[in-house]
Amino acid sequence: MTAALRLALTLSLSLLLLGGNADADELWLISANSQQVEISKEVVKQIYLQGEQGRTPLQPVNLVKGEFSRTIFNALVMGLTESRLQSYWSQMRFTGRSRPPLEVENTKALTDYLLNNSNAIGYLVVDDNTQLPDGLVVLLKIDFEK
């Protein structure tokens, strides 16, 4: 296990204990855009760093801070802690370059948003029992071990 992942999992431990997805072992990048067949981790990172006013047709969507999936996504894809990302966004916002991606409250709100906006992408930590709503496709799967 990498140090980065260990850190992410440590950060998330309290959330797991509070009822998070204890069997989770995959992070999925999802979208309603079935034309978008493949996407790499690096491309996803660039899309999310560009924020709300991105330079690709894909619109990144974040879960709110504290969500388990967001913590895992930050560690596995962004490679930065939440506080470093917040610093980055303060620089982007207060220099007028860009604003952080849209945030939604929970995974239900995320999947609803994606179903209504085919250019949007989001992420979810899933387990064996996860049922992806009809209309959404998986663009990238990232395994991680606890």
Binding site: T56, S87, S90, Q91, F94, T95
Partner: peptide, 28 residues
């Protein structure tokens, strides 16, 4: 469009990496 942005008015001089965000201590 997604690739071009134009600003007009009074702006911060972007000399160096933090010149235009010097007042925002949270950023560094």
């Amino acid at each position: 469009n997604d690739h071009w942005q134009v600003k007009f008015g009074q702006l911060n001089t972007p000399f160096f990496s933090y010149s235009d965000v010097q007042d925002v201590g949270y950023a560094y």
